[in-house]
Simulated assay, not measured.
Amino acid sequence: MPTRRTVLIVSAGMGAGHDAVAVELARRLAAEGVEAEIVDVLRLLPFRLGVALRGWYGWMMRSAPWLYALIYRVFFVSDRAPPTSPLTVMAAARLRGLIRRRMPAEVVSTFHLAAQAVGHLRLRGRLPVPSTVLLTDFAAHRLWLHPGNDRYLCSDQATARAVHAATGRPAFCHAPLVRPEFRRSGGDVTPVRSRIGARAGERLVLVSAGAWGVGGVEETARVLARSGRYLPVVLCGHNRELRHLLRHTGVALGWCDDMPDLMAAAYALVDNAAGLTCREAMAAGVPVISYRPIPGHGRDGALAMARAGLSVYAGDAGELLAALDRLGCGAERTRRIARGAALFDAAPAESFLVSVRHLADER
């Protein structure tokens, strides 16, 4: 099948992290002279199943996290789960038609259902171009892994080793895909502090609830506010109800477009999902503490970050405050920041893609 120098990035509008990574990768590819197109794998599912799946996931995380924990344990990490799900087959069928029309030179997946669907096609000889999986989680559950994919890109060495052992495929460590604005430090933080009403000397602690605004962040905000030592700035995402509930506890913000500025003003980030916000904090030189993580991939990712020395996992309120207090020590703070910054010494993700390498050879 003839190809052109186009990369098809298969993402998913499930939260915001997968799409944000896809957009940043597309921006970098464009800078290299490679065209990129982003498609949502959920939109490829028939009968509006993708819309239903997104809505169901959001409901579970807000109202029945125990149910998601059960599903995660049975289907995401269990060795007894079926190798190919009906959703994978349906997504793969639609994706095959899209690929035949677009004729890309390479396919990159930034969501686990996409990785399954593309790997399914590749293994059966229905995808004649390379398939790369770009993991957006620190912990690689089984739905990220499919032997049909050609290579895996991971944000840290431990994850890369685990992925290679599980799939037998090449797995590389790449620098996290975050917007360049997060790595620019030293600017004036007075405007953002003034905007959120922070008093002089107050230590701002960002509390991330992700795009969905889920998890036990109300309790986290109360712990920080009652300590008298930290001002909680809760990132409520698109959850208006959560923002209303927290209106008298610290600062509650909706969806933020100025995250680099907030990061520059932050003393620390308290996170509950181990997703893109953690990588953004590491890029900005903000220490990360995991507390009350959401079940499933959130908890596993938080534990994986802690094992790699990239964050602190706080088991209770006392440990959370103690971890924050230790960051007031210059040596501890410097060490934590250096661990996160070291991730960005790895090669950029785009350098591993076939299209970029071929373009470099031609030049």
Rank of each mutant, 00 (worst) to 15 (best):
M103W: 03
D257G: 02
W144D: 12
A264G: 09
A266D: 01
G275S: 09
L127T: 01
F111L: 10
A252Q: 06
L121S: 07
D188R: 01
R4C: 01
V178Q: 06
M61G: 04
V192F: 03
H248R: 14
V107T: 08
V286L: 10
L29H: 04
G318M: 05
I289N: 06
H238T: 15
G50K: 14
A64M: 06
P232S: 05
M305L: 15
P232I: 13
L206Q: 00
E202C: 02
V312E: 06
L127W: 04
P65W: 03
L113T: 10
G13M: 14
R48G: 08
V21W: 03
A52N: 04
L303Y: 04
E280C: 00
R94D: 03
A268V: 02
A200T: 08
L204R: 00
E218H: 03
V10S: 06
V192W: 08
G216D: 08
F172H: 15
A266K: 01
A264V: 00
M90P: 04
H297A: 15
A64T: 13
A211H: 00
L231R: 11
A265Q: 02
R94E: 09
R5P: 10
V192Q: 01
E362Y: 02
H238I: 12
F76S: 00
R299D: 15
G216R: 14
R203W: 00
A115F: 04
A16S: 12
W66R: 11
P2Y: 05
A211V: 03
A331F: 03
